[in-house]
Design a protein around this nucleic acid. Structure first.
Lengths: 206, 206
DNA sequence: GTGTAAAGTTACCGACTAGTAACATTCGTT
DNA sequence: AACGAATGTTACTAGTCGGTAACTTTACAC
């Protein structure tokens, strides 16, 4: 009856509470195999428990999905804050974000942006998780525009959007390219060019 | 018994042959609702026919998916050729491709790149369609590098990859942003900056 | 030890899925 | 008229899915 028996391949060194084990397993499986491809049974089995315990912790699979999206979003902003923290210069912060993003993307098992993937898998329905993803992406866009403005860009929205496009493109490129030579490795160089163009002569003729 | 009876909402003004109607309906539904979300019954019903006729025309749903991907790929290159045709200058061709891409993305009902969406929905399995998507994306990357080289870029791979990243990012941005103000509208400006940076002083010091 | 809360077990429901068998019908060609 | 190919119709299999009911077992607190 010990939890460490071999039934849950993912259940080793996991949080004690069943709910947390289910949640961690779900995030892992969702990101690796996709939301629609992973059933409730697969999650509970992977967490070393059973379906009834699942429905005692979550109202439905959809509710679990929403919670996964919220967690992803929270961790993203935490990651952002940590990456940005060592730098005071906005331009340095931007470059650090992209450097860390390339690292993160290539190290992760997941392909692409898990929030975008969720949006793809859950479209057509007005699935509640999609609104969360939309709101998050709008937040990221706003943050990039703020950073671009702080860096001194004349057109902060334009620079911010260009950066966002590159970031999304980098994640998307990991969907179909081998991470060892994916186009995402050209991200930083492209960002550098964009920053140079938008931030040149910051306080010359004003 | 006339095909024009109301059973197939999509079956009006469609090709005569059942196989073609099924194929057209499948592509429409796949791109709007997703591959996994659309069942064989929904396709055949939308095409104004039935499941048996489906399996007389296609070996399986997976085979149909592969054929849809192949068609998408073929139409993409045809679109590319038509967009590029009016221009002789490689840089003008690149800019035309992005201008047309923004137009295409904002006019289309589909959100994002349908091939990327397929890769998201069919991952985990070594689904045959995914190899087609991979190969196609590698082709696009190669074509961009060739174009960048023809335009006179010192580092054609770098410019080509940067362009590919922007293109993919533009498509991805349509997944979660309203197409009226999605970041994709900044695509051409960003491309212009990148081209200027990579193509400046083309034959000066060589 | 006893009570209580968390978790495990088994069995089930209804809906949906891809795919098939057997048969009936339409339609164009000759 | 007749033939054959394409298509429609109905019914079915077997599996999976999300979700639930009723009950049993564990573990911890007092």
């Amino acid at each position: 009856m010990n939890r460490s028996k071999a039934q849950g391949e993912l259940a080793q060194a996991m949080p004690l509470r069943v709910r947390d084990r289910i949640f961690a397993t779900a995030r892992e499986l969702f990101s690796r195999q996709g939301i629609r491809a992973v059933g409730v049974d697969a999650i509970t089995c992977g967490a070393g428990t059973n379906k009834m315990s699942f429905y005692r912790s979550f109202a439905s699979k959809d509710a679990l999905i929403c919670e996964c999206v919220r967690a992803q979003q929270a961790e993203y902003w935490q990651w952002w804050a940590e990456v940005v923290a060592p730098y005071a210069d906005p331009r340095a912060q931007i470059e650090a974000l992209f450097a860390a993003s390339v690292r993160r993307g290539c190290e992760s098992n997941a392909a692409g942006c898990s929030l975008n993937n969720a949006a793809v898998e859950l479209r057509e329905a007005q699935h509640p998780a999609i609104e969360l993803v939309r709101a998050h992406k709008a937040d990221v866009r706003r943050r990039f525009a703020l950073l671009a403005g702080a860096a001194g860009a004349a057109d902060a929205e334009a620079l911010g959007d260009a950066l966002l496009l590159l970031l999304e493109g980098g994640a998307a490129s990991l969907l179909t390219f081998d991470r060892t030579d994916a186009p995402v490795h050209g991200l930083q160089a492209a960002v550098h060019v964009l920053l140079d163009a938008h931030l040149r002569t910051p306080t010359r003729d004003a």
